[in-house]
Design a binder for these strands. Structure first.
Lengths: 123, 123
DNA sequence: ATAATATATTAGTATATACTCATACAATCA
DNA sequence: TGATTGTATGAGTATATACTAATATATTAT
């Protein structure tokens, strides 16, 4: 990210959007974490309850290092939680709202598809 | 993106996740478009009704080329719509569900913050 | 025709990040 | 103690993308 002039204060013209921008950055960050198919796969697996890293590696078909990194990202965002037991690390969903997000997105995608079908004269 | 073995069919072990993966990629794509502060700023502006590119440039403080690109991305995802009138191009929200998404995210973020405050002994 | 304006696009650059392998770290067991 | 196993991390690479300036395209006015 480079310049792109941020408003410096209440002076200097331009509408007041100072505070809102910080929120937008946080929101964008949250979306960013959900913008990876592999992370969504992991979350999808965790719907059934907590799983160890190894179990997620098996279930998703990813590499251990990669899964571990994705889990760290999800953990940093407070989307999952971690429980250590012996050598194992069990992850579980901490913020179930993300599934609502996914459902909303699916609704949108589906609506767009059916709209397209109609546009093509679909039944 | 590189290898990461995709299941080839119903044979070869591993649970059946073939179809789901395609959906997850679409969902991730949608999240990706929403994962940019500037695009969220644009969408936020469009809440008040359709706006021309130039008006969005003024309102967001971005460069014309950049705003135009972001609008293209939003248009390609069916999130906004475009109306051409003379020399102007007016964009407007096509899929208002995205605001529900943003609200859900805000709820999550807020919940996480208050949880942290409590953890720190906040009142 | 030329000029002026609004928008889109091309080309180039810088940064972010998803992935890999290899290795470090930590806990259990011989 | 060392060996084994599960997880995390360091280092390197490849790709995606957000940004910029400059230019192309299109519409209206002179």
């Amino acid at each position: 990210m480079t310049s792109e002039r941020r408003g410096g204060g209440s002076r200097g013209g331009k509408p007041a959007r100072e505070f809102d921008d910080q929120v937008l950055e946080l929101v964008a960050e949250r979306f960013q974490v959900l913008a990876e198919p592999m992370r969504l796969r992991i979350l999808n697996q965790l719907r059934g309850g907590e799983m160890s890293v190894g179990a997620l590696v098996d279930a998703t078909g990813g590499r251990q290092a990669n899964i571990s990194r994705h889990l760290s990202a999800l953990l940093a965002q407070g989307i999952v939680n971690r429980r250590k037991e012996g050598v194992f690390a069990y992850y579980r969903i901490e913020d179930p709202k993300i599934f609502d997000l996914c459902e909303l997105v699916c609704d949108s995608l589906q609506a767009r598809l059916t709209a397209r079908q109609h546009a093509l004269g679909g039944r």
